[in-house]
């Protein structure tokens, strides 16, 4: 399959570039660890507040941080594609016989691999602090991070390549980031929110993904919320990858 071969070639190049300058990987890792170290202990004090889910506070907190890592680990990669476009790399690749979908898929794959490494480190730190879940739950968490990371990375590449301007991409991402963080219950579970706010958050798909992961981390796998959360993540990822490929194709129209 030439698409797979081309994806692998684009992935290898992108991965080697990331490994050559791992500063960004490390910076991306420090932020979630800071959340665990500096914010997690606060949350454990809140476990008795009405509305806070029962059980280990870390099992409630870490799913949110993992979803956040998936979203924001992917969301900012669009800046990279703008600078690649500016240096002529994108046009150069477009003029090769490579499949258009491979040009984006290879880059998304690199982002997902970086994200998975970050997630494993984050989970290890969290276990040190008191996270206590079976390995199967951790594997499902990594699946969700993969889906979200792939979706946001594809979306960010699409936005970056469509806008071709850091000055336009930055405000777009900032505008989206804040409501997503606040309404998906990443930091505090939405079950603590007043009714109207819960209803607003119900339309945010990422809230359901956080809920799904929290259920899994509390030992419930065969419940509706898990199916909804993972189903949404899957559909969202497919949609974003399709959109990303369309934007790459439209570059030569």
């Amino acid at each position: 399959m030439t698409v797979l071969r081309d994806t692998w070639i684009v992935f290898k190049r992108a991965m080697l570039l990331s490994l050559q300058n791992p500063a960004w990987v490390i910076i991306g890792l420090i932020q979630p660890i800071l959340y665990i170290v500096l914010f997690g202990p606060l949350l454990t004090q809140m476990a008795n507040v009405p509305g806070f889910p029962p059980g280990n506070a870390w099992n409630v907190f870490v799913p949110g941080i993992l979803v956040q890592l998936g979203i924001f680990g992917g969301a900012f990669v669009g800046f990279g594609i703008i600078s690649e476009w500016r240096s002529g790399v994108i046009d150069r690749m477009m003029v090769t016989p490579a499949a258009r979908s491979a040009l984006i898929a290879g880059r998304v794959l690199r982002d997902v691999v970086v994200l998975l490494v970050q997630s494993v480190v984050l989970i290890a730190v969290a276990i040190g602090f008191g996270l206590d879940v079976p390995v199967s739950a951790l594997l499902l968490a990594l699946v969700l991070v993969t889906l979200l990371g792939a979706a946001f990375s594809a979306l960010s590449y699409a936005a970056g390549l469509a806008l071709k301007s850091e000055d336009a991409l930055a405000p777009l991402l900032n505008t989206l980031a804040l409501p997503i963080v606040l309404l998906s219950g990443i930091l505090l579970p939405m079950s603590m929110a007043p009714m109207w706010l819960q209803h607003v958050s119900d339309v945010v798909p990422f809230k359901h993904m956080v809920d799904a992961l929290r259920a899994i981390f509390q030992g419930q796998i065969w419940v509706a919320s898990v199916g909804i959360g993972f189903g949404l993540a899957f559909v969202f990822a497919i949609l974003c990858l399709w959109l990303g490929t369309q934007v790459f194709r439209s570059q030569t129209r």
Binding site: K12, R13, S83, S87, G88, V89, D91, R92, M93, T96
Partner: peptide, 24 residues
């Protein structure tokens, strides 16, 4: 095709750009 604004990423090693391009 050699575009006006170049073909290579400034951070990439010359060999990486040449080999990955040829592989495509």
């Amino acid at each position: 095709y050699v575009a006006q604004n170049g073909t290579t990423s400034p951070e990439a090693k010359v060999g990486l750009e040449i080999v990955s391009h040829a592989e495509l």
